[in-house]
Every structure is written in structure tokens, then in C-alpha cells.
Write a protein that binds this DNA or RNA. Sequence first.
DNA 1: ACTATTGTGTTAGTGAACTAATACACTTTT
DNA 2: AAAAGTGTATTAGTTCACTAACACAATAGT
Lengths: 119, 119
Amino acid sequence: MQWSLDKNRPLTPQICEQVCLQIALGQLQPNERLYSVREAAIEAGVNPNTVQRAFELLEGQNILYSVRGSGWYVSEDISAATDTLKALWREKTAAYFATMQALGMTTQAIKNFVEEWTE
Amino acid sequence: MQWSLDKNRPLTPQICEQVCLQIALGQLQPNERLYSVREAAIEAGVNPNTVQRAFELLEGQNILYSVRGSGWYVSEDISAATDTLKALWREKTAAYFATMQALGMTTQAIKNFVEEWTE
DNA sequence: ACTATTGTGTTAGTGAACTAATACACTTTT
DNA sequence: AAAAGTGTATTAGTTCACTAACACAATAGT
């Protein structure tokens, strides 16, 4: 899997998010083995400890599980991953609205601004 | 002026943004004197050095100017402040779109999601 | 003139989030 | 059995953003 990490934001949550997304998109199947902590760290250009921490967080959410000496695997039930992804959408959007309101925009003004957005 | 600062984000840019907004809203008039660095620091619950750094950044953008021994003042021409505010809107929105796309959403999906948003 | 208040500069300390470098135990492969 | 690869744990170092505590110079109010 390929990583696109923003060096200016905390890496650990970014890794969590991208693994969640790959699972939700079906590009990582239930019980499929991930790259090892060391491999993924090299691939993502990040320290192995950071990957380890991210995977442990995902384990706590029942999105991954580990087998000592063998590797990390996608959980049998991927609903935790999709739920987390949806929660992230809401979270990021709420934060965006809060930020824009702090910059003097009303809810309706934000909606109009987004509607007219072209990238 | 009253401050609403999010402890979890860098304080300096937040201070800059809020001063910009107050100027753009006309609640700080051209050549009006701000609270002193020390006063503002107490008011915002922040270290004086942080306020100092924020004001210096705003000075570099021609939004504020300082008079040694006297205080900080709003620039005669407030267009820099309103320009900065609009730039911030674009910047935050671009970042939001980038984040949501990294979480698997298309541009159109984001627009729909925002349209239906209720807080 | 005196004093308080101002902007300004410097140095040191803190916490979070990583990086770096190991070491150890367990599996898998050979 | 041996070697290589794995998860896991620990300790130390780094960077960034901010806090903390001053010191100094210029202005304003008395």
C-alpha cells in the first residue's frame, strides 16, 4: 500500500486513517496480512515505532489484530473500520465549521462557499 | 476584546486570525490602540511572548504597527486585514477538501455532505 | 524629574510527537 | 536445529511550540 503523509501533522493518526480507508474501500480484505511494522515504516518513510503505535491504536479499536512473530492482520469484521471512517468525516467537518465560524462566517455562508468551491 | 483560543492548536496563528477578524468586522478601527502585549496576554490566558510574536507577524503583514513605549495600533489601511481573512477562508477550505479526499471522498461527495450538515 | 507602563530581546525550561538504536521473545522458513 | 523475520519493549535524543522569567529602552502621566 502506498502512503501519502503530511509531514506537518501528527503521523500516527494519519497512518490509522489511511489503514481504515484501505479497509473500508476493500483494498485490504478481512484477515489479510499487512506489511510488517518494519516494512511499512520504510515504505511510509517513518520510524518503525510510529507504525507500531498506530497499529496498536487500531488494535484497540478492533480494526487490526497482531500475531506475535507473524505479523499484523485485518480484523474478520470490518465494520469498526467503516464506522471509524464515518466518524472521521463528521469530526473533520465539525472542526472545519468551527474554524470557519471563528473566522467570521455563518453556517449558511460556509455552505455557499463550499458549494462554489473549485479546486 | 475577548478571545476564544483552542489549546490544542498553535496559539500564535489563532491570535493573528482573531485580530484580523476584529479589524475586518470593524470592531477595531484604523489607528485604534490595542491592549498592550501584557494586558492581551493576561486576557487571553497566554504568555506575553506569544502575543508579542503574533503582533510582530501582523506587523509584517501591514495589519498592525507598534510605537515603542506606547503600544500597538491598527493600520490606517485595513485592506491587508480583510485580504488576509479571505485568504484564510480559502486556505482552510482547501485543507478541508484535501483532508476529506484523503479519507476517500470525492469533491461532489464532500459538497453533499456539507450541504446536509446540521450542527 | 520621577514613576509606571510600554515594546523588545534574551535565555532557560517544558511537553508532545517523533526519531533513533537497541534488545528480546516468538514464528516461520530453511 | 538454525537463521531470518516478526511483534514488542525500553531508553535516549530531537524538534517544535509554547511557557517562564527576566532585563533594557522608550514613552506617557503625574
